[in-house]
């Protein structure tokens, strides 16, 4: 089957690894070949966490520069930093709620303007879907559900060879029971927001 390549970038603590796990389990439910790799050293200490997920008939678990079909950034400046993974056809989904790097908080560096980040991504890739995922997560009932909001948006694009039903099944069975309802609501909100983006 055709190969689809997904990159997810996030800041440690944003739940990127759980999102990857849900996507992996969805692929397992869908009988779609999947391989994923993650770099999560020092994740709890504020560093960047990157997951690469390859669907289809490929042996590799990592994705080279310029070869992602879908890039999902949990944090706007991290989305921008990962643009080297994109090409002119890549679809990009980005959360627009920034987490200031420590260099910015102490006034040693400047955070790029959100409008500039979006313009640059639009100019260099196929399509950008950008919204405040934190706000939607709060609406779903837990600010930690940013990851499931973004998984919902990924599902809406139809780029991944996975069905909404299987995504929901994986969220129901593979995330903590106490959060399953919030996670499902977050998924739906993310899905609807991506739909609005058209």
């Amino acid at each position: 089957m055709d190969i689809t390549r997904l990159i997810i970038v996030a800041v440690g603590g944003q739940g990127n690894l759980l999102a990857s796990r849900v996507i992996g389990e969805t692929a397992l439910l869908s009988d779609v070949p999947v391989r994923m790799s993650e770099i999560h050293g020092m994740a709890q200490r504020g560093g960047v966490v990157e997951s690469a997920i390859v669907f289809g008939d490929a042996e590799s678990t990592i994705i080279s520069d310029g070869e992602a079909d879908l890039l999902v950034g949990f944090e706007p400046s991290e989305t921008l930093r990962a643009l080297n993974k994109c090409n002119g056809r890549t679809t990009v989904i980005s959360n627009l709620s920034p987490l200031s790097p420590f260099t910015v908080t102490i006034g040693k560096a400047v955070y790029p303007k959100l409008s500039q980040i979006q313009e640059l991504i639009r100019a260099k890739t196929g399509r950008l879907i950008a919204f405040d995922a934190r706000e939607l997560a709060e609406k779903a009932g837990n600010v930690m559900a940013v990851n499931m909001v973004l998984v919902g948006a990924m599902a809406q694009t139809g780029i991944l060879p996975l069905t909404v039903e299987n995504f929901k099944e994986a969220i129901r069975t593979k995330t903590k029971k106490a959060f399953a309802d919030i996670n499902l609501k977050a998924f739906d909100l993310g899905f609807a927001e991506a739909e609005k983006a058209g």
Partner: peptide
């Protein structure tokens, strides 16, 4: 080779070293 977009006009993105 894969067509990586020209990223020379990107602003400096603040580093995020683990702390």
């Amino acid at each position: 080779a894969p067509a990586v977009p020209d990223l020379s006009d990107l602003p400096e993105i603040p580093q995020r070293p683990p702390t």
